[in-house]
Amino acid sequence: MRWIFLLLLLGCPTRAARALGATQPFALHKVAEGIYTHIGAIALMNAGNEGGIANLSFIIGDKGIAVIDTGGSVREGRRFLAAIRTLSHKPILYVINTHVHPDHVFGNGAFVAPGTIFVGSRKLPATLSAQGPYYLKSFAPAMGPAMLADVTIVPPTLLVDRKLRLDLGDRVLILKAWAGGHSGTDISVEDMRTKTLVAGDLLFVRHIPVVDDSLLGYLADTRELALSDAATIVPGHGPVPQDWHRAVAKQAAYLETIKAELQADLKQGKGLAQSVQHVGESQRAQWQLFDDYNARNATTGFAELEWK
């Protein structure tokens, strides 16, 4: 695959760029013909990175554009929109949120416009309204009040129950709702023309996978993802892998490991506090942000598996 690296300087250091907090250029990778992805930082959301940790993509069709995820703040969303506008002035027909997490939806406010339809899982409106206020509160210390002041919770109006077909004119997108495991609200977007699958957080690369909903569900989703016939898979975090089969297998191996170790601990009667101290430790070298998420993944998995 041929990679083109585009550096989009937002008008260089203009006043407007500074006002947006644009301290770094907003880089876009061309993933396939008419498909671009901004690769987020492998980091936790904070004021310094404007919440810009998730991968953000867009697909240009001849009728208009579909945006996939909007970033971790309205500031990041605006910078993303400005970057899109350097490549195309077609209308933004759809804003698709791959799931409920703040790093993917907090930028929605930057994209609210007449004629733009927000799209998400059938479960997303309810989950967003339940968790949105909680996210705003719990991310305030790290993001700072200024960064979150203009963040609004924008729910989707077009919902994906199982599959949904979106027509951008010269290309068709198939949106698929997954059983859920990462977040319970996960959908993927596949461009049928280039067989590019934008997977959201169904796939993590380099960044340790995060289990927010269900360990077993996430494992099932990962196994199903392995059966995809996509040519390219764009993960929710980390670079687009050259060999996505390897990336999916690596994620499955991590989830399998913690599942097996948790089950062994439960069988031996170990408690939660004791178990999370060692589960997954053999996978440490494989992932970034291991200390930030591994014990949390183990906690979620433990509370789930002990009832099985």
Binding site: A130, Q131, P133, Y134, K137, S138, P141, W307
Partner: peptide, 27 residues
Amino acid sequence: AAGGCSAPMVEASASPAQIGKMQFRRL
């Protein structure tokens, strides 16, 4: 820690049919 009391609940025990199911294990 922050936000534990308002963290949304997980679906498993949210269903009325599940409420009150108990397990006791002796180790």
